[in-house]
Design a protein around this nucleic acid. Sequence first.
DNA 1: GTGAAGGGCCAC
DNA 2: AAACGTGGCCCTTCAC
Length: 591
Amino acid sequence: MEVYVQIVRDAEGVSKACEALSHSKILGFDTETTELDPYKGNIRLVQLSDGKNTHVIDLKPFFDSESLKATPELQPLRDLLSAPNIIKVAHNAKFDAKWVRHHLGSELNGIFDTYLASQLISAGDQDRRHSLHDVAQFFTGIELDKTQQVSDWGSNDLSNDQIEYAARDAAVMLPLYDQIIKRLIKDELDGVASLEFDCVMPIAEMELNGFFLDAERWRTQLEKTRVLQKKAADELQDLLSAGVAQATLFGRPEINLDSQQQVMAALLNLGIPVPGTTRGWQLQPLAEEYPVIRKLLEYRSVAKAISSFGENILDFIQPETGRLHADFRQIGAPTGRFSCSNPNLQQIPHDAAYRNCFRAGEGNSLIVADYSQIELRILAEFSEDNNFIEAFRSGADFHTTAAARMFGVKPEDITSEQRSFAKRLNFGIVYGVGASRFALMTGLSQNDAENTMRKYFGTFSGLDAYLRNSGNDVIANRAARTASKRLLRLRFDENDRQQISAARRYGVNMPIQGTSADILKRALRLLHDELRETSGKLVNIVHDEIIVECDSAESETVRSKLENSMVAAAEDFIKKVPIKVDATIASEWAK
DNA sequence: GTGAAGGGCCAC
DNA sequence: AAACGTGGCCCTTCAC
């Protein structure tokens, strides 16, 4: 691969380079930055390649070293990067988009992301790596030397090695694009690829926006939990050592309550028939009979609150903004779901004591919107079960309607217990629950659980047929797809019944969970375009929920834009079943 | 001391 | 009959 490098260091060079580049439909694109966090460092190089020439633009001369504000002379570059009709091929474009957004003040549009494309093509194969080095090697055979990646990009004079490295990373994007686009089309993944690419800019902005966490409230809540933990720990120690004779002589032998081994040994010592594991749902049936089990579960719950949702989350508050800027992985799971870390804003306890600490800034409001039972609606759409679809069309409470059909009584005569059975079954069905697990979670006998499930599938026979057929297809094709044609390939040993049933459950669940992810991603793009001229800023997403912060004066406008975007996105995929979105204006993240 | 694995539990 | 899907974070344990 020969690379013709042109270094640009002045305003005239920028406008000439951008003029020349603007005649291309597709450009290889990359940036080099002085840090990994756009709030901590600056963007140094922008590299753009049209396949013949690679322009390496040194931005150092264009930034005021004090304010880090770019000069107006970079306008041609902004125009080029934000032009949606000129494709920018980049690897992990979210990274570059954040720097361009924050330091150049421009959106990155026309994104083609080779990182996301590689993930889509690998279709859930966990063995495949997706670094630029590995992706370039896999699709083009080109071997990239990445040793300069971590070099000092802040120094006054960049070395020739650095310039060449920077240029090559942009230049390689074009041959890579040629190979990847062919493969996307062959695998019918070009549609879902567009869905993903359109979602990059919204996510980049969300990470820059951050989510405000009120540290004072958090600490107040934490203090209360600490008191509870101390009390629970004390009482649990007492109960666990009750059977030990020496306890009275030398005081209580201390047990490490966080050690499964020690806790399990102590429980056995008390003569409690603990199952193989001490997982909560396994212990639950024993809680009624043994106070020590109840106390253990109580202790676990507060201990979790202290460890996972304690002081540590406050360390993630960025001093520059006073907010949490978590990392979102756009294809975090093979189903297409997002994952989130540092901190994981998708696993904050539902309890208002925690969620109320996440609030809008001064003069702002939060708009909290979530899809109502989106996975069940997707299942209704896929199964084409008339009773299932009708239950949603009626607009009545879905779990009650399902219970009424199951138990053959009028909806108004459904008891809360019956509704609860239907509700837990509705959720379990999506994951492929079996009778024994259903029995365990409801307390029904195995026999009653089987009968209840039989009734359920008798009522929704179309659903039953769909789940069976879908499972058979998954095993026959060793693959599953969502509504956007996102692909998951399944690997299993056809002689291993456990592997087959696991693959079946996974493959049946994936199109449902994955279509929900498709819908959310579509919604994020529609929303991004709707919010551009408003004060609304995306601050968090949790699988079927979107949270936007905006000026309180604009909250009703933004609320309706958010609701409309979410409904419209779902209607792109779901045609037979009505979509319901609950969008509320609040000062805190609570429902 | 560090890192991986296993168990457990939070979210949807 | 057949162990309910996806993630991340915390803790302990154990190997190096």
